[in-house]
């Protein structure tokens, strides 16, 4: 694989074009931060319902890729498409609306609002969408029940364990029933058993709902839960290892 600019991950994945359509697509995306070229001509396609891990060393552009997909960062050049919408050409408020309905985002440190209870954190995106409190509360509770956190619903964030807080953040990302879930190092702040629990919950949930997921990670253990791995180096795709490496939890789950 060539680490230079313009290398794509499209080769061999033409089956995702047309037909059922693509969930996500990046075309020749360039992003520069000052003197640093974070993404150089990156092109990636992700099919509906696919779970993709984005791996690579620190500074390879993984998180920048995720921010582009979330519409939180507009590339200097290139195109980012989510479903049939070209996110990169939308104005900021339209991208914000899109995050309320189509894109769930999960961060490494959860990023819950500390003063709110667990259920209030989960229902917050629904309130931003203009949904009435009782309806939002019911939906948030349903997600907490699904993640076996309903007994912690009225707990302040400070009273939750790291794993619980991350699962609440997962519920907050999924409560809008997004077509795409974007997770940035979702287990990076957790110990191994808790991280595995969160990953299992996350992957089971997105698979059950047919949600497309892109998981940025540097842990091979986490990447193994994915259908496919995209490895970045210096802002470009380095290669795509074979699907489901034997002996890792992902292959076991898929088999």
């Amino acid at each position: 694989m060539r680490p230079d600019a313009g290398i794509t991950a499209l080769e061999g994945r033409e089956e995702h074009r047309g037909g059922s359509g693509l969930a996500l697509r990046l075309d020749d995306v360039h992003v520069r931060f000052g003197d640093t070229q974070a993404l150089r001509g990156l092109s990636v396609e992700v099919g509906p319902g696919e779970v993709v891990a984005v791996t690579g060393p620190s500074g390879s552009g993984k998180s920048t890729l995720l921010l582009c997909l979330a519409g939180l960062l507009v590339p200097d050049t290139g195109r980012v498409t989510v479903g049939y919408t070209v996110v990169s050409s939308l104005p900021d408020d339209a991208r914000t609306r899109m995050r309320r309905s189509e894109i769930g985002v999960l961060f490494q440190f959860g990023e819950l609002v500390p003063e709110l209870t667990a259920v209030e954190n989960v229902l917050l995106p629904l309130l931003f969408s203009g949904i009435r409190r009782p309806v939002a509360h019911d939906r948030a509770m349903a997600w907490l029940r699904r993640l076996r956190l309903d007994d912690r619903a009225d707990e302040q964030v400070s009273g939750l364990s790291g794993g619980e807080a991350q699962r609440v953040a997962l519920a907050r990302a999924l409560v809008i029933e997004p077509t795409v879930l974007l997770a940035d190092e979702p287990t990076g702040a957790l110990d191994t058993p808790t991280g595995q629990l969160v990953m299992r919950e996350m992957v089971d949930t997105v698979r059950a709902s047919g949600t497309t997921a892109v998981i940025v990670t540097h842990e091979s253990r986490v990447a193994a839960y994915a259908d496919r791995e995209i490895h970045l180096r210096d802002g470009a795709v380095l290669g795509e290892p074979a699907v489901g490496r034997s002996g890792l939890p992902g292959s076991a789950a898929r088999s």
């Binding site: 939180l72 609306r97 931003f128």
Partner: peptide, 16 residues
């Protein structure tokens, strides 16, 4: 500020 960033990511309008 960090909270503002996180809420932006979950669909809050700028300045919420």
């Amino acid at each position: 500020r960090r909270l503002a960033s996180a809420t932006r990511a979950v669909g809050a309008p700028p300045g919420a």
